[in-house]
């Protein structure tokens, strides 16, 4: 599988992500219920269903891949204004704007996209890696992607490495103590549970790498 380059390939990637979220919604909800209010599966499904509907519209004519990300982000932020929905939505919007002039996305452009999403979520959400949030999947994913490209790996290989790292990042959240959001109230009681936001982060890189393997 190839990493998305054109606008229509980014649409395909996001629809693939919507399907992954649909298949994982119950797991997301169960993970969130251990520490939060359990609505993460519902809100992510709501957001990505709306994104799929919008992007599947035959009338849709988007030339630039960045515009697809902006459209997906504003849709998510509109229909799922939960903390994660808003942070993720605006991460997509800002990333899309950063690559607005590109007609095709190469490895360097994707590197900018992931860094922008990570920075946006960290700044607006006032969180960092280790706080048991989506960043614990997105940061290792983005870093693994960059190091693989630096080593001279192909974009496809780098995307797969990013997914593996993001997935491991999600697994590692079991050892972490929550400091953000509702889960932050549980402090040390949060150790032992994996984070639902980080699961969501791993799904994003799974869709990006077009990884067929079950997760």
């Amino acid at each position: 599988m190839t990493v998305p380059q054109s606008a229509s390939e980014v649409v395909d990637m996001l629809i693939c992500l919507a399907h992954l979220v649909e298949d994982t919604a119950e797991e997301l909800g169960a993970l969130d219920a251990s520490l939060g209010d359990g609505d993460l599966g519902v809100t992510m499904r709501k957001g990505f269903t709306a994104i799929e509907t919008k992007l599947s519209d035959p009338e849709l004519s988007v030339v630039h891949p960045g515009d697809v990300l902006v459209l997906a982000g504003t849709t998510m932020a509109s229909v799922a204004p939960s903390t994660l929905g808003t942070l993720l939505g605006f991460g997509f919007v800002k990333a899309g704007k950063k690559v607005a002039d590109k007609e095709s996305l190469d490895g360097a452009a994707w590197s900018v996209i992931w860094r922008t999403i990570v920075d946006s979520i960290a700044t607006q959400g006032k969180a960092q890696r280790g706080d048991k949030t989506i960043l614990d999947a997105l940061v290792p994913g983005a870093e693994a992607f960059d190091s693989a490209l630096e080593r001279g790996d192909s974009v496809e290989e780098a995307a797969l490495e990013a997914y593996v790292a993001a997935r491991q990042g999600f697994e590692d959240t079991a050892r972490m103590q929550a400091r953000q959001g509702r889960a932050g109230r549980y402090y040390e009681h949060s150790v032992g549970y994996k984070d639902a936001g980080a699961r969501m982060g791993a799904l994003i890189f799974q869709a990006f790498s077009r990884s067929e393997q079950a997760s």
Binding site: T74, A77, S78, V79, P81, S82, T86, F90
Partner: peptide
């Protein structure tokens, strides 16, 4: 205007 006890969206 948001849902009961939930924030409205930034788009609104």
């Amino acid at each position: 205007v948001g849902d009961v006890f939930a924030s409205p969206s930034a788009m609104v």
